[in-house]
Each structure stands twice: as C-alpha cells, then as structure tokens.
C-alpha cells in the first residue's frame, strides 16, 4: 500500500459520513480516499489493485455512486456519505449480494470481490430489474483474474428482480 506523505504536514479538516458514522478528522490533504479508508479508518475491505482507476478493486460508494477511491482524493469526499464493503449490511444479516456471491461460488482469491459487490449494489439500487447486459456494463470497470466472470454475473443476476 503506497502511503502518500506530505512534506509540509498541511492538514485538512475533513467531515464526512463513513458507513453511517460521522467522521471529523484532521487529515493530510494529499491523501487519496483509498489511503484514508484503509490507513486512517482501518477499513481494509477496500483493496488497492492498480492504483490507476483501471481495475475496480478500490471501489466505494460516494453519495450512492460507485467511484474508484484510488484516484479520488479524500478532500473530495468532504461533506459526503461514503459506504465501503464493510458498510453493506441487511440489518443484522449478511448482505444479500454478499450471500449470493458465496452461494454461487463467485469468489476465488477474493481480491476483486469487494469492488464487484460495490458496483453491483450501485447498479441494483438504480435498476433493481437489471438484465445480463446491464450487469456486464455495470461491472465493466471491475477486473477479476480468477473466476472468468460467469459466476460473478450469475450471482448479481440472482439478486436482480424478475
């Protein structure tokens, strides 16, 4: 994990909501959102793959929309609501998309899984009846090196209505 250090130690007073919890912190303004989530908040579910916006391992929801947190600066989340894989819950039960990934055997090494589930959640929130084409499009920014995608697409399809 690359840490982005600030020579001048110039701080930014960041206020945001992460997984429903109000966060107020003085942070290094040159920190990426990914660095902030993983290192400052210890939310290690969000992964760093490429660090360049290409693989989707780092995906989080900001104001309900999927973003690549590796190329977003933490200051850009100021005043916003952030949800990470840890924050996806169905009350006290395992989140239904997570359950579907397990049931369908859509997880191998698991590195891409948090990002895949975040993208799937963003899709199903806006299109609960998503078809296979919608699912492929929604996951087009998420790369998996293990599964060959079929099981992942199947797991998401099982969560879509109709």
């Amino acid at each position: 994990m690359k840490m982005k250090k600030n020579k001048f130690n110039k701080i930014f007073s960041l206020k945001c909501i992460v997984n429903g919890e109000k966060i107020e912190r003085d942070i290094d303004s040159s920190l990426t959102l990914l660095g902030f989530l993983r290192n400052d908040l210890n939310l290690k579910g969000t992964k760093e793959g490429c660090g360049d916006g290409e693989c989707g391992a780092c995906m989080a929801l900001v104001s309900g929309k999927a973003v690549n947190s590796c190329i977003m600066m933490a200051v850009q989340a100021h005043g916003k609501s952030v949800i990470t894989i840890e924050g996806l819950k169905d009350k006290n039960k395992l989140h239904h998309i997570k359950k579907s990934f397990i049931d369908e055997g859509a997880v191998q090494c698991g590195f891409c899984t948090p990002g895949m589930i975040i993208s799937a959640q963003a899709l199903l929130k806006t299109k609960p009846k998503a078809n296979i084409k919608d699912i492929k499009e929604a996951l087009s920014g998420n790369i998996c090196r293990c599964t060959g995608y079929e099981k992942i697409i199947g797991a998401v399809k099982k969560c879509a209505k109709g």
Binding site: G53, M59, N68, G141
Partner: peptide, 12 residues
C-alpha cells in the same frame, strides 16, 4: 458517453 471509460469513472 457509453464509450467513455467505465461507469465508476463516469461518476467522477
């Protein structure tokens, strides 16, 4: 628009 990057990049 659909030819531009990925859905998450389009959100950014």
């Amino acid at each position: 628009l659909p030819h531009f990057a990925s859905p998450s990049l389009r959100n950014m």
